[in-house]
Computed example of a mutant assay.
Amino acid sequence: MDATPFHAGEVAVQSRIGVAERMAEVGRRVVRDHMPEQHQRFYEQLPLMLAGSVDPAGRPWATVLVGPPGFVQAPDAWHLTFAATPIPGDPAAAGMTAGSPLGLLGIELHTRRRNRVNGELLAAGPEGLRLRVSQTVGNCPQYIQGREVQWMRDAADTRPRAVERLSQLDGDAAWLIAAADTLFVATHAGAAGADVSHRGGPAGFVMQEDERTLLVPDYSGNRMFMTLGNLQLDGRAGLLFIDFERGDLLTLTGRAEIVWDGPELAALGNAERAWRFHLEEGWWLRDALPLRWRFIDWAPQNG
């Protein structure tokens, strides 16, 4: 890319931090409009990819697409196909239609490898999905907890054993958030498209302020600020918490604002800033994943 790959929201955050000029140069080297060969092969051997979609009301949702290794294919550097459909009952499905933006994250927890790819859905139906790539970037392994994956049942069986709507974060939801060391966040910025990103930290790194509000620390990262940049332009976010031992998904959507400074940051360890999430709607998808993960070790940054 000859021009800057960053949109106005990302540049605004980079400028506030004082890194816009440097990131413009870095971005031209590492942000691409196509997938490198190694990214293509990486996606093709994964059993799961994270996805961020935007429903007809403009609300982002973070979710997963699941299948046996090979369910993702890269026929060339500009397209991805998925022999998978959204999880039944998943609100993210409403945004997975032809012509819609979709953000994707391929992540392998046991190797801590991850790459992002964003684009537009060319096709979506019972046979699966087809994406035209618009932006790709490799991500560093920071804050990823090591976990080994194993199959518990047939890969096609993503039917949740229960689907439950929730309007506040209490009971099981509060317990999962309090124990979480990983979450995924979906955002979007209009014409700039949709995105989904990983966030990790020590267990309990997300602070619950009340029954509808979460405070999420923002640690030092790659300085691209794709998530925060999207929030600058459209203050909506979708959060996904995975119960790695039970296969449950807790998916939330709501409003988010960046917390640049203030006393609340003191309680978040070495966070450089944070963002506050206000729940509007949430869903439990119980035992939706045919996969489980065994914890191996903590990310070195948590030490």
Rank of each mutant, 00 (worst) to 15 (best):
H7D: 13
A8E: 14
A8Y: 10
V13L: 05
R16K: 06
I17G: 04
A20W: 13
A24Q: 15
D33L: 04
H34N: 12
E37H: 12
E44A: 15
M49K: 02
A62T: 03
T63V: 11
V64M: 10
V64F: 09
Q73C: 14
A84E: 03
P101E: 12
L105D: 07
H110D: 11
R113K: 15
R116P: 03
E127Y: 11
G128A: 04
S134F: 09
Q135M: 12
V137P: 02
G138I: 00
N139E: 10
V149E: 07
R153W: 15
A155S: 07
R165K: 06
S167H: 08
Q168D: 15
L169N: 01
A174W: 01
D181R: 02
V185K: 00
T187G: 14
G190S: 05
G193M: 09
G200R: 06
G204V: 11
M207D: 13
V216D: 11
Y219S: 02
S220I: 13
S220K: 09
G221D: 11
M224I: 05
F225D: 04
M226C: 11
T227G: 09
G229Q: 00
A237V: 10
A237C: 04
L239F: 14
L250G: 13
L252P: 15
L252Q: 07
I258F: 02
I258V: 12
L265C: 10
A267Y: 07
L268A: 03
E272S: 12
E272D: 09
A274D: 09
W275T: 12
E281K: 00
L285N: 07
D287I: 07
R292I: 06
W293F: 03
W293S: 03
D297E: 05
Q301I: 08
